[in-house]
Design a protein around this nucleic acid. Structure first.
Lengths: 154, 154
DNA sequence: TATTGTTATACTCTATAACTATA
DNA sequence: TATAGTTATAGAGTATAACAATA
């Protein structure tokens, strides 16, 4: 998925959209598309995607996390995550250690290069989120996050 | 995309997830996945997907809507929408009329069979939404919808 | 020439099956 | 035998280019 599209920013004022506007799943989809499109614009220069951003953050905050935990957390199938991890490792952003306690298990770590990348990306995060949520007050932004957290199984 | 997955319902309590939980784009993605997975479960018997559900609703409320408007509203590329419309038409759920004012333009309508299908689907909608939003009060559900509407360009 | 709809096609994302190695 | 990781591969979903018919 790449950039926006010329046709979608002020869509079709003349249509009756009440039913969809009251459909949470549809509104969540549109909101997620907006965030992902904005993400690609803001983070393109760093070469970070929504998926790799989340992977970096989780490894940063949980060094040694195994791929299986990462996959279930991010809602990625393990084989699909492995492909991304292979690219991140061959690019030198992460490394894999074999666990000494259980030699089947893999422990994921950031390399210094990876730590540097997520550090730079993290500085874009706040202004990016602010831009996406601009129509909401600070309190409303917190409310939105809290409601989303409540409907999810954390 | 089809059903849930055994591994993701109570993910990884032991990990530090604070950063992602404060990342609206990530939480929106998880919420959207939850709604779509639940949708497939609830609407599978009717053969309706999130995309076709939205298409049916817009045509029902806006008979004669052209494919181009439908595509920009639903954030689908026109060629991808056309493929879905072809299937819905050959299955007898919608029909295409050529506009008399502009013979390039197509006007989309539900057939009686399509109207019946969306009528049956609409009866599943309220309990489905209630199930997805169960952790929220009625007032909170309204707040969530309102905040999502505010960050989108309607 | 520009616009609407359409076809063909490529690319990305996601899903399943099967394999390796450890336990 | 069961589990963690990996590979291979198939299937959706989404993207662009090019074309026909009409304006």
């Amino acid at each position: 998925m790449k950039p926006a599209g010329k046709s979608g920013q002020q869509p079709e004022k003349s249509l009756n959209l009440q039913a969809l506007q009251r459909t949470p799943g549809f509104m969540l989809r549109l909101a997620q598309l907006k965030f992902f499109e904005g993400f690609y614009e803001e983070f393109a220069a760093l070469g970070v995607t929504p998926a790799t951003y989340a992977i970096f953050v989780v490894i940063r905050d949980n060094p040694g996390v195994p791929p299986s935990s990462l996959a279930s957390l991010l809602r990625l199938r393990l084989p699909n995550l492995i492909k991304i991890l292979n690219e991140l490792e061959s690019s030198g952003f992460i490394k894999r250690n074999r666990s000494k306690a259980d030699r089947r298990a893999v422990e994921l770590m950031l390399t210094p290069k990876g730590a540097k990348l997520i550090h730079e990306a993290a500085r874009v995060t706040a202004p990016y989120n602010q831009k996406m949520l601009a129509p909401l007050s600070e309190a409303e932004q917190r409310t939105l996050l809290e409601l989303l957290n409540r409907i999810l199984p954390f």
